[in-house]
Amino acid sequence: MSGDDARLVRAAQNGDTLAMNELLDRLTPYVGRICGPIALPNGDDATQEALVAIFRALRTLKEPAALYGWVRRIAVREAIRVAHRDSRSTPAELTEVPAVGDPQLAADIRDVLTRLSPEHRAVLTLRDVEGLDEHAAAELLGIPTGTIKSRLHRARDSFRKAWTS
């Protein structure tokens, strides 16, 4: 978050639509990186709906320094919602998120993601794309830290089992 971002947020909140336009330029790739892995084929829809929610609520953001955390929270919420809405989504085959450094993650991340529920994809995205620790991810998703830990740490066996079956 730069001072320039804070200036843009203030200007956008004060009604400058060119500042809104520039803010949209900056936020779109960030929101797309979160919504893409969680909503998968509906990533573009999720990105649009997340940004609509963000721009509708922009005036309620009291502290511009909190912009990216606020945006991240909305993007994850909308991506999970859109992913569940998709009637084409298949039941999750994997019940746990693969551990950090699991070679399968590097081999074919999209295949791994399609085997997870949207909530598990969110955990993985927050950890591996956003670099959040367990506490921050749990807080953002509104679930206990212990649940995050179990999703992250008891992963390897079940993941490998599903992968090799």
Partner: peptide, 15 residues
């Protein structure tokens, strides 16, 4: 990692 994007028409809806 998969990413998502907006075309300019979707972008206009957002703004």
């Amino acid at each position: 990692w998969p990413t998502a994007d907006l075309d300019e028409v979707r972008r206009l809806h957002v703004l």
